[in-house]
């Protein structure tokens, strides 16, 4: 296995994880007996057809959903519920409209009991990191979609998590902004050395960002496929091997 970086922290282990929901009296199994290992500092993309449970898996990893059985270990220790070592970036920026950019980015730390001045100092650093240094005092309604999502990313980074969980974070952006943001995410991931689990329906995005791509099967309980993306960074979308990975992943979904 050619996991690019292995750092001590932020290692995720999923063992025998099952999760089902009850919908109109019927039980809907979403994840069944799933095992997964994410190395510390790795970037893992999670893809799969709709209904394959990719978002549910991410939400269980985040602690927003409790698994029915099995569990999640972080750095070897079992975790239940939410934790400061993980932060979520949602598809929508989910900014609080009554706080400025600075207020939104420091929100996570403030909620965790850090004093406002300390939280804001850290927040300023990450606002600059996502390239919004001049927009500290702007209101969310004044931001474009891409800028708002950057604020959401900065907010998650500010709590300095070991593991960054991204739920289709670029799914709502226009094509151009999306490409820029993919490069931004690569840069941030490299600089921050965090473990990244990214749910996406964009196969190219998965290849561009991930060390490995996890393909969740449609049939529950079947073994998920893992594909190593052993391309050097920065990655070139038009390079032959990149294109070949794209074809391989498309084929997994029966597409050409």
């Amino acid at each position: 296995m050619s996991v690019a970086q292995v750092s001590a922290k932020g290692e995720v282990t999923v063992r025998d994880l099952s999760k089902s929901f009850t919908l109109d009296g019927e039980t809907l199994t979403v994840l069944k007996n799933l095992d997964l290992d994410i190395a510390g500092g790795e970037s893992l993309a999670i893809v799969g057809a709709s209904g394959s449970g990719k978002t549910t898996l991410l939400r269980v990893l985040a602690g927003l959903e409790e698994p029915d059985s099995g569990g999640v270990l972080i750095d070897g220790a079992p975790v239940h519920g939410l934790g400061k070592e993980r932060a979520v970036i949602f598809q929508e920026p989910r900014l609080l409209p009554w706080l400025t950019v600075l207020g939104n980015v420091s929100f996570g730390l403030e909620v965790q009991g850090i004093s406002r001045s300390e939280a804001e100092d850290k927040a300023r650093h990450y606002i600059r990191l996502v390239g919004l240094g001049e927009f500290e005092t702007a209101w969310p309604r004044q931001l474009s979609g891409g800028m708002a999502q950057r604020v959401g990313i900065a907010r998650a980074l500010t709590v300095q998590p070991e593991i960054l969980l991204l739920d289709e974070p670029l799914g709502a952006l226009d094509a151009m902004t999306k490409l820029t943001m993919q490069e931004e995410l690569t840069r941030i991931w490299t600089e921050e050395k965090v473990t990244m689990a990214l749910v996406t329906h964009d196969l190219e995005e998965a290849i561009f960002l991930a060390d490995r791509v996890l393909i969740l099967p449609r049939e529950k309980g079947a073994h998920p496929r893992l594909i190593d993306i052993d391309l050097p960074r920065p990655r070139d979308r038009s390079e032959t091997r990149f294109v070949r990975f794209r074809q391989q992943l498309m084929a997994e979904f029966g597409l050409h």
Binding site: G63, L64, L82, A87, V88, R94, L96, F107, Q112, V159
Partner: peptide, 9 residues
Amino acid sequence: LVEMARSFG
């Protein structure tokens, strides 16, 4: 928004 706040603990 409530879930976002919850996700930060």
